[in-house]
Nucleic acid binder design. Structure first.
Length: 570
RNA sequence: CGGGGUGUAGCGCAGUGGCUAGCGCGCAUGGUUUGGGACCAUGAGGUCGGUGGUUCAAAUCCACUCACCCCGACCA
């Protein structure tokens, strides 16, 4: 492709709307353009990258036994009523009504449709297992799209759905997909980490996410400094520090004027925060819930939400708290009635706690569970933090920001049961099909690649997903010798099946070099009167500072081809 | 949905009631340049987000409204 013909212009200035690095660079490089909040067009350079990522994904899915198909973007709302997932998607589910007043959904994902497809075609265990995938546009009416391509409403996603006669078969495929995902990210040249994950609205039991580590990531990854444990903070478990259990002392009421926070209370009574209990109030689908946890820990709202099987969980408002007769800052599970109490299991690790007294400016000392209060549910609802202890090996946990680019789930049978997808087993008994699903956000992966690979000049594409492998930069195109040598090289490189973006514009060297750096093509070749004087071309990798001269001769294209393939392997 | 912000040329911005709405980038034409975003000259390009109001007079003041961005809520 010649730059003089390429659709899409580079920009010198940072677009006002773009905040994240990847958004700024992708717009400045002329790769994407926003048309509405969270809705983008892909221009040729951006689309080329996307197609390369898609191709790598396709090859890995095919290798893993997947078959690609295409599913409708618009789906009947009834499918979502049947699956029962309508409430958990809530307003993100984008619906419309056709001329016959029939309610339709723009697919936010395709489990419902694919299950319906499979339901009609699978009758026997002999038809299983089955791995079907699609790469296409989906739409979620996100409350707040942000960060350019990092969180959009219309997005391209690869989803593979697997169908099984038994759990072993699902396990086998799940492992295969883990390997396929690792291959995909490795082949893209993007280091990834796999972490244990919460399965969220999608449902299901076991679930893992694939993250690209980047400072700007929205997700927090907790990982162990010594073993291989890694989990999304939403899911991560910690070994709660043991505290010596002392003989239980009688409860004592103490005056604590104007003392509300845990650290103030602990300081006032001269105990560590781990000898206090913290109370937090939530509204779970409208019901007030009293959550209690040891004072040195924080509540993990995702764990709490899952535990309560709540669709909506938020902190209770001040008004709601007052109306329930609770005293913020001095609340206590002791003597509390008329509301659900959920406790973190840390309240059993410790003794003689300091808690609120349910009276203003008063606290209680020496409170012990279960001697002094009862709870409705006791479970792990604590948030992991860096510095906490790993449950697997007692190592120290650390945290990093990551961008979620893939998520895989063992769905089980809840969808196939609800949608009536069953098969006859060897004994002629009808059973629900066991399912798994495996997604990759293709556009987000592209953006995450930029977040991970850039410098102050622009993007630095990994070779495997770069829109072109080579940026051929001809300086002084009005010089016939330059023009001729550049045209010949462009032609030869093309014949050697190298992907070349040929900057044939009559622009100054600075403009061309800056554009080359901005667009981020891995290898730059420069031809100019200066290089021709030496019968050579200049060659420079985008990631490196140094350039070198290669002699302009017959073997040049072979030499470049070799460099490119060596770079790809290295 | 709550809080904050921004809408003026393709892009980035200036313009707080008064003449024909400006500047930079980009674009067009001509010329001089030519290894890290060159220079000179000339030129094209505007429903000032929209609607309604106040006024002799509105990009500018008021009301409503729409869009976009940021923080939070939310989020495979």
């Amino acid at each position: 492709m010649r730059v003089s013909n390429l659709f899409g212009k580079t920009l010198k200035e940072i677009p006002a709307e773009a905040d994240s690095i990847s958004h700024q660079l992708l717009v400045r490089a002329g790769m994407i353009q926003q048309i509405a909040a969270g809705i983008y067009s892909y221009f040729p350079l951006g689309w080329l990258v996307l197609k390369k990522i898609e191709q790598i994904i396709r090859e890995e899915m095919d290798t893993a036994g997947g078959q690609e198909l295409m599913l409708p973007a618009i789906q009947p709302f009834e499918l979502w009523e049947k699956s029962g997932r309508y409430p958990s998607f809530g307003k993100a589910l984008f619906t419309t009504i056709d001329r016959k007043e029939h309610k339709l959904v723009f697919g936010p994902t395709h489990e419902e449709v694919i299950t319906d497809v499979v339901r009609r075609h699978v009758q026997s265990y002999r038809d299983l297992p089955l791995l079907l995938y699609q790469i296409q546009d989906k739409f979620r009416d996100e409350p707040r799209p942000r960060g350019g391509l990092l969180r959009v409403r219309e997005f391209i996603m690869k989803d593979l759905y697997s169908f099984h006669a038994n759990a072993e078969s699902l396990d086998k495929t799940y492992q295969k997909m883990i390997q396929a995902y690792k291959n995909v990210f490795a082949r893209c040249g993007l280091p990834s980490v796999m972490v244990e994950a919460d399965s969220g609205a999608i449902g299901g039991k076991e679930s893992h996410e694939f993250m690209l580590i980047a400072e700007t990531g929205e997700d927090e990854v907790i990982y162990c400094s010594t073993c291989d444990y890694a989990a999304n903070v939403e899911k991560a478990c910690i070994a709660k520090t043991k505290i010596e259990i002392k003989p239980q002392l009688p409860i004592e009421e103490i005056s604590t004027p104007n003392i509300k926070t845990i650290s103030d209370v602990a300081g006032f009574v001269s105990v560590s925060t781990s000898q206090t209990l913290k109370a937090v109030f939530y509204s779970a689908d409208g019901e007030l819930v009293f959550a209690v946890i040891r004072g040195d820990l924080n509540i993990n709202e995702v764990k709490l939400k899952n535990l309560l099987k709540a669709t909506e969980l938020r902190l209770a408002t001040e008004t709601e708290v007052k109306a329930a007769g609770l005293v913020a800052g001095s609340a206590s599970p002791v003597g509390l009635q008329g509301m659900k109490i959920v406790a973190d299991n840390s309240i059993t690790i410790g003794s003689n706690f300091v808690v609120g007294a349910n009276k203003p400016d008063m606290h209680l000392k020496n409170v012990n569970y279960p001697r002094d209060f009862n709870v409705d549910i006791i479970a792990d609802i604590a948030t992991a933090r860096p510095g906490d202890i790993c449950t697997k090996c007692n190592g120290e946990l650390l945290a990093q920001q990551g961008i979620e680019v893939g998520h895989i789930f063992k769905l089980g049978i809840f969808l196939s049961e609800r949608l009536g997808a069953s098969f006859l087993d060897q004994d002629g008994i009808s059973r629900p099909i066991i399912m798994g699903c495996y997604g990759i956000g293709v556009g987000r992966l592209l953006a995450a690649a930029v977040e991970q690979n850039h410098d102050e000049k622009g993007i630095i594409w990994p070779l495997a997903i770069a829109p072109y492998q080579i940026y051929l930069c001809a300086l002084n195109m009005d010089n016939p010798d330059v023009a001729e040598a550049a045209e010949r090289l462009y032609h030869d490189l093309g014949n050697a099946n190298l992907e070349v973006l040929f900057d044939d514009r009559e622009e100054s060297a600075g403009v061309k070099f800056n554009d080359a750096d901005l667009v981020g093509i891995p290898l730059r070749l420069t031809i100019s009167p200066r290089t021709l004087k030496n019968q050579s071309v200049e060659i420079k990798w985008r990631r490196e500072k140094q350039s070198e001269l290669l002699p302009l001769q017959q073997e040049l294209t072979d030499k470049i081809k070799e460099l490119v393939s060596k770079h790809r392997k290295g």
